[in-house]
Design a protein around this nucleic acid. Structure first.
Lengths: 210, 210
DNA sequence: CTTTTATGAATGAAGG
DNA sequence: CCTTCATTCATAAAAG
């Protein structure tokens, strides 16, 4: 939850207030007013909030990067389109026409689960008679069709006897990779406040208060 | 809504400019040591730096996301957000951070299409400065990058021939698909500023530190 | 109009 | 290298 994410700085803030109370172990004079303290705390909090939002944004962005800008099917960069940038913004993704879908389904059901590249071409050619389409569309369609069909099958087949045994949710290593191998690619999820704090320099400074 | 919650949070603090000066003519004794002050300042500075970096990263994306939307429904349960004990499903596969991707793309564009074993090590080493990564990740990335780049070329190539002059025979009824382009998706709105600073309150506070 | 669902597309990883 | 699979994201379509 949100508060959790703020925990980091909150902890540090508590530390600060503590210091405020007994400096030097002896004389205790109030100099910086609570207001002033509040102001500082505010500043940090504001930045924390902003950081949090940025992180959030960053996460949403990270998943969809296409920096290259060269999309797979972006054949013609129509100057008209690019100039206006918003004019012809038709649909962004292909949608099979009913006829196309019918044909696709028929082919799919026909068994031959592996539409080779040549097959793709033929199918595309046929389907283009009934609407705009590309080989990529056909390819993707079969990929998705198969994957989702498969997934449904798995759901129907509850072979897994102990499905709801949640007693051991957090097994230390659920990966199937060899622990000795160098590919430790399984995401180290418990990266506490990771993400944007991966710069070691920054990171170290973050905790310098403790 | 995140934004809303944030505003709410900030609402409780309104006075901030009337602080550093003095406190009603009271005695000004030093309580918080300079060190402690410094610590606080540092905290703020650190957050500022992080924010800067995040913004920078974001700018470098120049992707096609409508940031204002913030429709991210947190579909995938990110372990970072959830409390520590309830991590159910961590992400299973590596995802390059924007910085990492930037670097990878740069290397890729630099020509040398064959990242040797040694090269992989180097790259991995460098990228690990910007986030968790393994050599396998790098290897796979290059493999995929090349393969898909190549396939894209194949799609583009048939351009020289008479591309689609003859395919205009589609039946009059199926107009579901837009005849504008194949399956590309153009960038709707590459707006890259403002983003989370839409909150004027926050925005103003961003600079109150100076 | 907002929320939910269905599905096209993107991509990391595995296999050959 | 190339293909294939699994997972995820974004959005068109459907439901409310």
């Amino acid at each position: 939850d949100e508060q959790v994410r703020m925990m980091e700085w909150n902890k540090q803030e508590r530390q600060q207030q503590l210091n405020h109370q007994n400096v030097g172990g002896g004389i205790y004079v109030k100099v910086m007013t609570d207001e002033q303290m509040e102001v500082l705390r505010e500043q940090i909090a504001v930045y924390a909030t902003i950081c949090e939002q940025l992180v959030e944004m960053h996460k949403s962005l990270t998943s969809h990067h296409d920096l290259a800008g060269v999309r797979l099917g972006n054949l013609y960069c129509d100057p008209l389109v690019t100039s206006v940038g918003h004019k012809i913004t038709g649909r962004q993704r292909w949608t099979p026409t009913p006829v196309q879908l019918q044909i696709l389904e028929r082919i799919f059901d026909q068994g031959n689960g592996t539409p080779s590249k040549q097959k793709i071409k033929e199918i595309t050619s046929e389907l283009s008679q009934h609407g705009q389409i590309s080989e990529t569309n056909v390819y993707n369609w079969f990929q998705n069709r198969r994957a989702r069909s498969k997934r449904k099958q798995q759901v129907v087949t509850p072979n897994n006897a102990e499905s709801e045994a949640e007693t051991e949710v957090e097994s230390p290593n659920e990966t199937k990779t060899n622990p000795e191998d160098f590919q430790s690619q399984h995401n180290p999820a418990p990266r506490a406040e990771g993400l944007c704090f991966q710069n070691p320099q920054i990171s170290s400074r973050m905790h310098s208060i403790d």
